[in-house]
Design a protein around this nucleic acid. Structure first.
Ligand SMILES: [Zn+2]
Ligand SMILES: [Zn+2]
Ligand SMILES: [Zn+2]
Ligand SMILES: [Zn+2]
Lengths: 140, 140
DNA sequence: TTATCAATTGATAATGAATCTAAATTACGA
DNA sequence: TCGTAATTTAGATTCATTATCAATTGATAA
């Protein structure tokens, strides 16, 4: 589960515990991302924050997301197009709507398939991507 | 299985059957890709062909790969980084080595996991990506 | 507090992938 | 052989991301 940080203090503690300086930019980015279930891109986060944080730079958003990734506070997703960032670092899969682009979390498949013919290859993690149409786009 | 076209004639027939003009560029790209098991990028194909085909342009490689994708003769892969192209259009999965980048075909998982909590979402296709270390990189 | 200093920031440049443009060429059917 | 629409090409263009680096600032200790 991803947690929404109620207080700056709580968010600041997370950063310091991870050995990162608690700057206002990082606090804002961490708080914005942690409550977000849409798997936003760096650009989207930037635009959302820039309104109330005029001096923020995209470079800082990228830097912070990379730092948060390093300390396991988020995880980048390569689904085609710009990278997306997921505050939910627990193992789970994704359903991607091919029409509207919505990305939905999917509980990790209970049956993690064990592929055959993978001799010699040591699997560290498995990614499952379900591509199709979300309820809205499917018409019904 | 992906087939290696022995003759230009055979490759030309494939293109025409798909409603595509059989240009020398397309023939070269189709033949180069069809025997390739490494999931090359557009750039890699371009470099490989440019040696014996000096006037070839990258734009043509991209155009041709898009055309071949439209007629189901190849399939683009988004695994992070530049798009890769797979001449094997039969359903199968991929194992990606996190050290050397090798991408290996994996027989489609026999147990296509049926995710729960996917209510309303109509799945068209599922992608499985196994990330880890190939035999060479795993040391032993 | 204040001083110190390495970490961080932000503006901008640089890179890389992919697409677009428009003019020149060409496959192929008449 | 000719005419024409499809295709190719080089270069410009867009978009995502990373690199650069001087200026700023958070954390720590005096
Ligand atoms: Zn949708
Ligand atoms: Zn997710
Ligand atoms: Zn390897
Ligand atoms: Zn493959």
């Amino acid at each position: 589960m991803n947690r929404i940080f109620q207080s700056e203090q709580e968010a600041a503690a997370v950063l310091r515990d991870a050995g990162l300086k608690a700057t206002p930019q990082r606090l804002a980015i961490l708080r914005a991302l942690s409550g977000d279930v849409t798997h936003p891109t760096a650009q989207e986060l930037y635009e959302r924050l820039a309104t109330h944080f005029p001096a923020l730079s995209v470079a800082t958003v990228y830097n912070t997301l990379a730092a948060l990734t390093r300390v396991e506070r988020c995880r980048p997703l390569d689904l085609g197009g710009p990278a997306r960032f997921d505050p939910n670092v627990a193992p789970h899969d994704h359903a991607v709507c091919e029409r509207c682009g919505e990305i939905r979390d999917v509980k990790a498949a209970e049956t993690r398939p064990k592929p055959r013919a993978l001799t010699g290859f040591s699997v560290r993690r498995v990614e499952h991507i379900y591509r199709g149409l979300c309820a809205k786009c499917a018409g019904t």
